[in-house]
Design a protein around this nucleic acid. Structure first.
Lengths: 102, 102
DNA sequence: CCGTATCCAAGTAGATACTG
DNA sequence: CAGTATCTACTTGGATACGG
């Protein structure tokens, strides 16, 4: 999302969870700690495969989500939150609560 | 930000605070409850007048910020959080904390 | 099953100049 | 002082088709 604001912690966080899907993906992973790609798809039916893969990549790059790949046939991957990712729990739940009151 | 995800509270919240500036504007207003336009400019030197005005408009439309205009010369406006806006406090502070650890 | 590639529409952000 | 207008560049998100 364009450029970061220098020395602004909030902006760091915004960049990490911004976009249409990242926060909801984290929310799913908070309640389902280990998730396969197809599970995430089922839980987020409005998110295309492309967007899901893209956002998971960003989340992984930011150290929020970790990915485990099993070299099996058919392939299998599991996504889960890192400890840093889990620390976003209160923020995400707070967003959930606020949204429910809207 | 494109279209809302049906029946998803988190998405509501994301849409309300997304973008490069809205969350930091709210943060300023949490610590300086009543702010003139020029005060906000001073506190957010990297935000152009245009962006500041735009985001304040969205925040006002979403019922997070309220605006008070004094019909004086020179003109004077004051921005503050609505009660609904203040309820975002914990979320915004949580984002601040998480970002500081990054 | 788990993605990537390509293409396109829409939104977001910045620079700059102008106004009541 | 507190905005708006215009013009442009970049980013995001969706549809669809293809690949390991």
């Amino acid at each position: 999302m364009s450029k970061a604001i220098k020395g602004c912690p909030i902006d760091q966080t915004i960049q990490a969870i911004a976009g249409k899907w990242k926060a909801v993906i984290i929310h799913v992973l908070l309640h389902t700690p280990v998730c396969r790609f197809s599970e995430l798809q089922e839980k987020l039916p409005d998110c295309t495969r492309r967007m899901l893969a893209l956002q998971l990549k960003k989340l992984t790059a930011d150290g929020i989500v970790k990915k485990r790949v099993y070299a099996t046939v058919p392939p299998k991957t599991e996504y889960s939150l890192t400890s840093r990712g889990k620390q976003l729990g209160p923020v995400i739940e707070g967003m959930q609560d606020w949204g429910k009151q809207g």
